[in-house]
Design a protein around this nucleic acid. Sequence first.
DNA 1: ATTGCAACTGAGAATTAGTCTCAATTTTAA
DNA 2: TTAAAATTGAGACTAATTCTCAGTTGCAAT
Lengths: 160, 160
Amino acid sequence: MEKQVFKEFLKKKGLKFTKERAVILKEVFSYHGHFDPDELLTKMRKKGLRVSKASIYRTLPLLLESGLIEEVEKIDKHAHYEHTFGHGHHDHMICMKCGKVIELFSDALEGLQEELCKKENFKGIRHVLEIRGYCKKCIGDRKIDIEGRHDRVHPTIFHR
Amino acid sequence: MEKQVFKEFLKKKGLKFTKERAVILKEVFSYHGHFDPDELLTKMRKKGLRVSKASIYRTLPLLLESGLIEEVEKIDKHAHYEHTFGHGHHDHMICMKCGKVIELFSDALEGLQEELCKKENFKGIRHVLEIRGYCKKCIGDRKIDIEGRHDRVHPTIFHR
DNA sequence: ATTGCAACTGAGAATTAGTCTCAATTTTAA
DNA sequence: TTAAAATTGAGACTAATTCTCAGTTGCAAT
């Protein structure tokens, strides 16, 4: 369970498992889709969970380093994350017109990357693959809404 | 040659090929490795080339859209680019310890991505793949310098 | 349990990347 | 040559992230 993973990670680094870190971890794992630090803060505030912005910004890199979350979507101005413990790594296709995000995962792709790493004697820890282009809907060059919310379907697609 | 490509791109969009854009283009193509907007500005200032920060930030997206440069290194805080006209698209492995950047290109990888796009009816325009991990040298867990400069060897490797 | 201390915290100041504004200027097509 | 539309620079502005520092807390060793 993620709490144990995080605790061990922290101990190994000589860091402390504080209340704040516990609360942040829990909150992060209560989400399904992507989130950014500010969203995280706001949602926690609404729930009455009090952690400072600074603590959030200090904790996310630790979660990242421990492998419990991944960073996704960097083309946007600010960082986005999602937790991966349990539901696993995947990459993204992002429509440049409507912003739709399609999650993709391919064993072949992962395997190929491993191979490439091996060839360079590189120990790959994590990666980000982001394909920008146009989704089916937008290829037709029609205007569509930028709105919508994280509806999970198969193959896992988000709107934002 | 890149100047023609850019000119045509601009004309097609009803935009102007201004002195400033020409100068920025030239500067961008005088580099070998990665750069970020601020670096670009500073270097141009040092050379006595006068363009405003705003113009740089306005021109880079155009170069990106025209396919003359690509966005790389998404994990870092700010955007990084590199020109690709002539030397072609490639992805990156970045050592989390020493910062070494290994360029990689694999037809299999590109092809696989195309396939995946097709499967989702997604029209891929560009992508960024960045693998973070540890290079050969750093797997041994030794301290090494963060310094060094863009030395081109095969398979194209940069230090920074 | 107590303790010592390094790590941590919150609040808000500081920094920084990137965007915006607007009046003056320049490109381009006719 | 001209007029319209696009562009420019300078600096104000915004938003994201980092930093500072004094008070607090987790935890390993007593």
